[in-house]
């Protein structure tokens, strides 16, 4: 019995579409809630090649919504990309899955063995989304932005030529302004809703359907609102990426993380000189971080068992962590700001 028989009965897919899915390559950046939902659906749909990228490990607080992980993964602290790949191979052994335990940086993307047909945003931070936006624009690869916090979600298909994420917001918003799953929480169905939009659009793009949605999908699953805002019929005339062919995130210096000699501490230098609003950040963290302490010179707090000291220029010291990659993940999660 053909495992895809129910799928290719869909008029927009058919046998031909199923073949196109089998030969397609999709890069899923971030294997959190959204990334695992979407990767699971794509693997089961028979997308032939899945590249997974995540720098973090499975933690207990992930299990509430990140569907590919088990308690055993969290106990062992398995890298998310590895754990997800194992589970997906069990679901569909025909799919060729490559797990990258890595930070999605410009260097990482440049070193990929080829160009994927599509990139799915499963990240939890805007700096990486802007990197995906610029890299995909430069390499003529479509990508699908998606994000969810609290009970709300948003998603948008970005095709080569735009409109793109920078048309919507020219620069990455500060984490303090948008909130994160850590600061405002996350309800699992909000993830499922944006994942449903993201996967449906992904399948349409991969089979070459003319029905790919435009505009920005938004939802609030608590209030039961699901809409598509008809924003952005065409690229913004001021967009540096769409109109001027510039890709700021590809040339921005990556944040530097250095382990302090002889200590369980890492210093993060965000590589930008723009000021960080410590008071706003303190407000965001008030309910979720502990030991919050604001002085004129720094903001201290404890989160995920790590003590943070953040300075007005965005520089931060993370005490109680040794691995620079882990420190960068924590920085993006709790402070999250890059050019």
């Amino acid at each position: 019995m053909d495992r895809y028989s129910r799928q290719h009965r869909i008029a927009g897919i058919g046998q031909h579409g199923q073949e196109r899915l089998r030969s397609a390559t999709v890069l899923v950046v971030g294997c959190g809630a959204l990334g695992t939902h979407s990767a699971d659906a794509l693997a089961r749909a028979g997308v032939g090649n899945l590249w997974l990228c995540d720098r973090d490990v499975v933690e207990w607080s992930n299990l509430q919504r990140q569907v590919l992980f088990t308690e055993a993964d969290a106990r062992a602290g398995i890298p998310k990309a590895t754990a997800a790949a194992t589970r997906l191979r069990e679901a569909n052994s025909d799919v060729r899955i490559v797990a990258h335990v890595a930070e999605c940086s410009a260097t990482f993307l440049a070193a990929l063995p080829g160009r994927p047909d599509l990139v799915l945003d499963g990240t939890d931070n805007f700096p990486t989304r802007y990197l995906l936006n610029d890299w995909c624009h430069a390499n003529r690869v479509p990508w699908i932005y998606a994000g969810a916090t609290g009970t709300e979600g948003a998603a948008m298909v970005v095709r080569p030529g735009g409109p793109c994420l920078r048309c919507l917001w020219p620069d990455a918003p500060a984490t303090a302004d948008v909130g994160t799953c850590e600061t405002v929480g996350i309800l699992a169905p909000a993830i499922a809703a944006v994942a449903a939009f993201q996967v449906a659009e992904a399948l349409k793009l991969l089979v070459g359907s003319p029905d790919v949605a435009t505009g920005v999908f938004t939802c609030d699953v608590w209030r039961g609102h699901y809409t598509r805002l008809p924003l952005l019929d065409r690229p913004s005339p001021d967009c540096v990426a769409c109109q001027h062919g510039q890709h700021p995130a590809l040339v921005a210096p990556a944040p530097m993380a250095a382990t302090l000699c002889g200590r369980d501490a890492v210093q993060i230098d965000p590589g930008t000189t723009a000021a960080l609003d410590l008071t706003a950040l303190a407000g965001q963290l008030a309910e979720v971080a502990t030991d919050l302490q604001r002085t004129p010179h720094l903001l201290r707090f404890t989160a995920d068992g790590v003590r943070f000291s953040v300075f007005p220029g965005g520089r931060a010291l993370l005490f109680g962590v040794r691995d620079p990659l882990r420190a960068r993940a924590l920085y993006d999660r709790w402070i999250g700001r890059r050019p």
Binding site: A265, Q267, L298, S309, F311, R315, L317
Partner: peptide, 12 residues
């Protein structure tokens, strides 16, 4: 203050 904190403040 941790020495690293003082270093970061002075660097600022």
């Amino acid at each position: 203050l941790d020495p690293a904190e003082i270093g970061a403040i002075l660097a600022g």
